[in-house]
Design a protein around this nucleic acid. Structure first.
Lengths: 344, 344
DNA sequence: TTGTACGCGTTATCAA
DNA sequence: TTGATAACGCGTACAA
């Protein structure tokens, strides 16, 4: 590992000159430039980024905190890949840090990134409350952006998606097709997203003058297995329903399996609506109509915003994104499922 | 941002003492310890990791290079999450760096991590050749581990999976069920994995005394769309086949869709075998029997090895992993598909 | 048990 | 156009 000093000696100049050549700042004669470059070639010199970052208090890195429980398939990879691509186009690197399983650990991950002098931090929170995040933003000078939460105080530091609206639309679409008995499978209820989606479902029923029946609402935990379990619970409860709104695709897949195992032909009898981002889901789950979160767009906007903050300016504020509702023809209007009709 | 010096002044001691308190190394009286801790509380001091890393030439970080094209759904998230978890248990952080789209960029990503003084580097290569990687390992002092490639020289620095064997087994299983006309959809042929899988398929045919028919081998590009296109090509070619081995799940899903669109009932007529790691695939694709890559195990082993190298020792060498072959009953033995039989 | 002083490899300021 | 030299913030022999 040769240092800048070694390059300098070899080129017969001072460290300062080498530094100038590398940064392109300041005046250096072509002659000495050539000498320096040759010395760099010969020594295989590479700048020590730690030293550079320490000296400049910059790192050309943006940190991303995502909690372990969200490391989940397509949604996650879309998030990461979009972030990496956008940042790369800006000459920066992405550093991914695990937020693990609690608010304290999410907090710790943020501080770690800060201690590393990241130029900016993106948080996709799972446990931290919006108030805690507002405090965090107050605390740091460097740009901090929050994805998937609507902050109270720092409105321009967050990007979020209208989960309630998406859920409302999905439910409304089913109602428009004639469904009246619509079940709902929630996500983990400690997640704001899950709560919003449930509330969109309820509001849509109410708006249509339909009753909200708690017996048709079952809790899931985002996983395929929990979706399957939820369907079992619904079937066991012996209530009629002709459609299910499921709070994400993974659970929808589990729900499908369980329905199928129970001998219920979904395209004919029950509509399942997922959310999120499994691109293949629309044709894997016959009756699925899906609501796709615009992860890519949101991440993209977050990074625009961070870069803009680093450059001193503030972008105009486009905070709220809406999901795309994709309805498919194969969602049949009937015959609807009811325990009596489907039991042997 | 208060520094160690400020803490020291406030506590009425020297920097060195503060450093000792923080590291737990060296003797410090309880009394001064208390004073230092109080000063830390009061100032909200946090060590500057850049400075620490520069001073020690360590970073407690492990870098992971993955190429953009591999940021793909479940396989990728399983890789990342396992890596993050294992490292965390060891008190280290994972830094993910994009290998982008070429060998040069993969190389650059590695150097970046090195310039950041990562304690170790994990490469999941896409474009770098094994020889190039052997050279890279020679070049660096810090531990470098390669996933999914069998190196020539540094055998203990790589972990790989027997893709050829998996493919062989999958094909063999179909043959055992009576299939004789088995088509194959490859991955991108610039990928060693794709080449190995193809060769396993061929060998299995040969071993069973069956002909290798190039007309039944179609190139895909790992994506669902390319799987669908491959099936179109197969159908257009007008050759009979009763089963397809598909080089990954994504393509298998696309293949399924295309078969279904063509009016071919898969469970009855065509068996599709995928690879990789979509956990829900087995019940999403009726006729799928799958070969699952042990990503988690491989990553886990890689990290064990890196940690062991950092601690000076070398683990015993468990390099090769094998995939699990999961066959499902629903893979029907017949009737087989043939153009004549299925055309209107 | 504590403090001094130097090194880590850069960048940046100011003379020359 | 170039070169000393002082930061940057921390670790660590070595001395006290």
């Amino acid at each position: 590992m040769s240092t800048m000093q070694e390059v300098a000696s070899r080129a017969g100049v001072s460290k300062a000159t080498v530094s100038r050549v590398l940064s392109g700042k300041g005046y250096v004669s072509q002659e000495t430039k050539d000498q320096v470059f040759r010395a760099i070639e010969e020594t295989g010199y590479r700048p020590n980024l730690l030293a550079r970052n320490l000296a400049t208090s910059k790192s050309m890195c943006i940190g991303l905190v995502v909690t372990n429980t969200l490391y989940n398939g397509n949604y996650f990879s879309e998030l990461i890949s979009q972030a990496a691509k956008k940042l790369d186009a800006n000459g920066r690197q992405l550093i991914l840090v695990d937020g693990k399983n609690s608010a304290a650990e999410e907090q710790e991950a943020i501080e770690f990134l800060h201690d590393l002098r990241c130029d900016g931090i993106i948080i996709y929170p799972r446990f931290l409350s919006v108030d805690e995040m507002d405090l965090i933003i107050d605390k740091y000078k460097k740009p901090v952006m929050v994805v998937n939460r609507k902050l109270r105080k720092h409105q321009s530091h967050c990007i979020y998606c209208d989960h309630k609206g998406s859920s409302y639309q999905a439910t409304q679409a089913l109602i428009a097709r004639g469904h009246r008995d619509i079940a709902f499978i929630t996500g983990s209820m400690d997640s704001p997203t899950a709560i919003e989606r449930l509330s969109g479902y309820k509001d849509a029923l109410i708006a249509a003058g339909l009753p909200v029946r708690e017996s048709l609402i079952v809790q899931g935990k985002w996983s395929p297995a929990s979706g399957a379990a939820a369907v079992s619970a619904l079937l066991a409860a012996d209530h009629s329903f002709s459609a299910i709104v499921v709070s994400n695709d993974e659970m929808a897949i589990g729900a499908m399996k369980q329905l199928s195992d129970a001998g219920i032909k979904v395209p004919d009898a029950v509509s399942v609506i997922g959310f999120d981002n499994i691109p293949t889901a629309p044709f894997l789950i016959p009756a699925l109509s899906s609501v796709k979160d615009p992860v890519s767009d949101m991440v993209s906007e977050v990074i625009n915003q961070i870069i803009s903050m680093l450059d001193g300016g503030y972008l105009s504020e486009k905070n709220q994104f809406t999901s795309d509702l994709i309805l498919r023809d194969s969602v049949a209007d009937g015959p609807f499922y009811s325990p009596d009709k489907n039991r042997a």
